[in-house]
Computed example of a mutant assay.
Amino acid sequence: MIQKVSCYYISARRCLHGAGENYKEVRGFPGVWPPAASGKIDCALLPAPRLRPGLCDRFSIFRSRLKSNQNMIAQEMDSTWTTTVLLVPCVVLLTAGFFHLYGVIMGLLSKKSVRNKVVVITDALSGLGKECAGVFHKGGARLILCGKNWEKLEELADDLANSSDPTVTFPPKLVLLDFGDTDSMPEAIAEILDCYGCLDIIIFNSSMKVKAPAQTVSLEVDKLLMDNNYFGPVTLAKGVLASMISRRSGHLLLVNSIQGRLAVPFRSTYAASKHAVQAFFDCLRAEVEEYGISVSTISHNFISCSASGAPATSKSLWSLLYTKKPLGVSPDEAAAEIVKTLNNKRKEVVIAPSLPKMAIYARSFFPNVFFAVIGAGVKNASIAAEM
């Protein structure tokens, strides 16, 4: 019965809604309140409440104030939205300008950072080697260019001299260096050290590639690749370490392939040599750090003359890892990354599109999935070759 009375009470209160600010002002009903338990209130028959004077005016003022507050809120929201629309483009422009200015400043600092430094570039006749030679020569470095062909080295030196101001640059030194000829390495190392008596930076750029099934590659080819990709750079690094340790300064930078981190089919010997030289420089980094010598490795997927071109026909993961176009890295991009790495002294850099980088992590965290995708790519390639 009490529950019903409460319901009647609530109904009566709802019928009187709007008569006052709260129920205390409108509960002045004649008779006894609440009604008898058995009584039922008919909202239509309730007598009009006795309102205090000026109560309706107070409600009118309250409603007008409420409407004015709503209008003010709407105006503030409109002004906030307008400000946001105008502010976002300004922020974007300022951010872009900041990064552009940062790039210009870093470019100027990079040129100053190599000035008067003795820089050795192996395989200077390659596309990346020539690009690095041009960048460091214009930056005022004392270059030592190494290569297998003396005539082409002289042509490169002449091109550098003709394209720069001789008053602010140094004529490059030339050294014949062939990583494949291990017997000539001691003489070449001595000649490199005799050029200026010291070394500041060495860029290990030489590389030899072969693509074939493992069972078809002869042992002689295996040894040749290991000489060029592993024993040659290792011999040169060991030969100059004593000079750097005595000066307690120097920077060794290995331009390596991404296959030093990730192996794909039909490049077994090449991947093995790149894994070996990567491991050597990783160990060397920790050994010589106490002498103030920095060791950096840059792993790229492919360096081409142009990073643009026709898309590859094969869409398998392993084929995309080494597709020359359009996933290749241009020499100027690689050279800019080398300069940046030397300035920041970063230990390890990967220059590759997103897919090869994802494959590196997949190889580490999801090896079974990675091997399944690689195997499927080999099967697809075999079927396409048969057709």
Rank of each mutant, 00 (worst) to 15 (best):
L51V: 10
K148D: 02
S273Q: 00
Y9A: 05
A19E: 13
I201P: 00
D123E: 06
A36R: 11
V210M: 09
Q3G: 09
S306W: 11
L241I: 05
Q278L: 12
Q278R: 14
K152E: 02
T182M: 08
P367Y: 13
F59I: 06
G140H: 10
R52G: 10
S110H: 13
A312V: 12
N343H: 05
T169V: 13
T82F: 04
T83S: 09
C43Q: 08
A157H: 03
V264N: 04
K209Q: 08
P166G: 07
R65A: 05
A336G: 07
A212E: 06
S273C: 07
S364A: 09
L225Q: 02
F98W: 06
L236I: 07
L254H: 01
I374Q: 15
S184E: 10
D78V: 03
P353M: 03
S113Q: 13
I258G: 01
P331A: 03
R346F: 10
W318L: 07
R14D: 14
A276G: 03
T83F: 12
M244C: 15
R261M: 04
G260L: 02
N343C: 06
T83N: 12
N69F: 11
D194V: 04
D158T: 08
N256W: 00
N229A: 03
P35D: 11
E76P: 01
T235F: 14
I144L: 10
S294R: 15
K274C: 00
R261V: 01
R285L: 08
T313W: 12
L86D: 14
S60F: 15
G377K: 03
Q278C: 13
R63N: 15
Q70R: 14
D178K: 07
G375K: 12
S319C: 05
G54E: 07
A272M: 10
R65P: 05
V104R: 14
R65N: 13
M358F: 07
G20Q: 08
G292P: 06
I10D: 13
K211V: 03
D227P: 00
G180R: 10
A36I: 05
K345R: 15
P34W: 11
V135K: 14
Y230T: 02
P166S: 10
C132V: 03
L219V: 10
S308A: 04
V91Q: 05
A310L: 07
S206V: 04
L199G: 01
E333A: 12
E155F: 00
F136T: 10
L193E: 13
Y270D: 13
V92F: 09
G375P: 04
N301V: 03
V119N: 04
D181K: 03
R13Y: 12
V329R: 04
H275N: 14
G260H: 01
F179S: 01
I10S: 14
Q75G: 08
E337W: 06
F302E: 01
L177T: 03
N380W: 11
T269Y: 02
C132P: 01
L241H: 15
D159S: 05
G20Y: 14
G97V: 13
A276L: 05
A352K: 05
A48S: 09
E76D: 08
V221S: 13
R50G: 09
Q278P: 00
L55P: 02
S243L: 08
T313A: 09
A381F: 12
E21N: 04
